[in-house]
Deep mutational scan, measured.
Amino acid sequence: QVALSRTQVCGILREELFQGDAFHQSDTHIFIIMGASGDLAKKKIYPTIWWLFRDGLLPENTFIVGYARSRLTVADIRKQSEPFFKATPEEKLKLEDFFARNSYVAGQYDDAASYQRLNSHMNALHLGSQANRLFYLALPPTVYEAVTKNIHESCMSQIGWNRIIVEKPFGRDLQSSDRLSNHISSLFREDQIYRIDHYLGKEMVQNLMVLRFANRIFGPIWNRDNIACVILTFKEPFGTEGRGGYFDEFGIIRDVMQNHLLQMLCLVAMEKPASTNSDDVRDEKVKVLKCISEVQANNVVLGQYVGNPDGEGEATKGYLDDPTVPRGSTTATFAAVVLYVENERWDGVPFILRCGKALNERKAEVRLQFHDVAGDIFHQQCKRNELVIRVQPNEAVYTKMMTKKPGMFFNPEESELDLTYGNRYKNVKLPDAYERLILDVFCGSQMHFVRSDELREAWRIFTPLLHQIELEKPKPIPYIYGSRGPTEADELMKRVGFQYEGTYKWVNPHKL
Rank of each mutant, 00 (worst) to 15 (best):
P393S: 04
S293V: 05
P273Y: 00
F449S: 02
V300P: 02
E395V: 10
D321G: 05
S483Y: 04
K404T: 15
H510Y: 11
G422P: 15
L430T: 13
K400Y: 12
Y421G: 04
D440H: 04
L261H: 04
K404S: 15
K404D: 10
G444K: 05
L359R: 00
R327C: 11
F410M: 05
R390G: 15
D453Y: 00
P474V: 12
K285I: 08
E454L: 10
E271W: 01
F449W: 15
L267Q: 09
M270V: 03
G348A: 05
P326L: 12
D432T: 13
N308R: 15
A315R: 09
A269E: 02
P309C: 10
A315M: 15
F409P: 11
D279K: 14
K400G: 05
L437V: 15
K363G: 11
Q381G: 06
Q380S: 06
F351V: 02
L471D: 08
P464S: 07
Q499C: 12
H448R: 10
E488C: 09
I389T: 04
Y421P: 14
D347G: 15
F334Y: 13
N394I: 08
L265H: 00
S293Q: 09
Y479P: 00
G485Y: 00
Y319F: 09
M257L: 08
V325Y: 03
L359W: 00
G482V: 01
R495Y: 07
V428T: 12
D490Q: 12
E501S: 11
V325H: 07
G307I: 01
I469Y: 14
V441S: 03
M257Y: 01
H467K: 15
Y504F: 15
V295Q: 03
H467F: 09
K505R: 05
T503E: 10
G482N: 06
N277M: 05
K290V: 02
H448E: 12
S483N: 04
M257G: 04
E457V: 03
F378C: 03
G375A: 13
G482L: 02
Q499D: 15
G497Q: 15
A489Q: 09
R484C: 14
S278L: 04
P464T: 10
V301Q: 03
R451K: 03
K475T: 08
A364G: 10
L466Y: 15
D310G: 12
V337C: 11
E413Q: 11
P406D: 14
L492S: 01
Y481H: 06
E284C: 10
D322K: 06
E284S: 13
Y479Q: 02
K287Y: 03
K475C: 12
K511V: 13
F449G: 01
Y481A: 14
P474I: 14
L437T: 13
L267M: 14
L368P: 02
L455V: 01
Q446N: 03
H467S: 10
E413W: 06
P350K: 00
P464C: 05
E472Y: 10
K383F: 15
V496F: 10
A297K: 11
P476A: 07
E470S: 11
R484W: 12
E344W: 06
Y500D: 15
P474L: 11
L353Y: 01
Q296T: 08
A374N: 07
V306D: 09
Y481M: 07
V349M: 03
L359Q: 05
E472I: 05
M402P: 04
L465P: 02
D279P: 12
V286R: 11
A364Y: 14
G311V: 14
K405S: 13
L302N: 01
D440V: 02
P464N: 08
V373G: 14
E416Q: 13
V337P: 01
D321V: 10
T316D: 07
L387A: 03
D418Q: 08
A358K: 00
K494H: 10
V341M: 08
F334A: 07
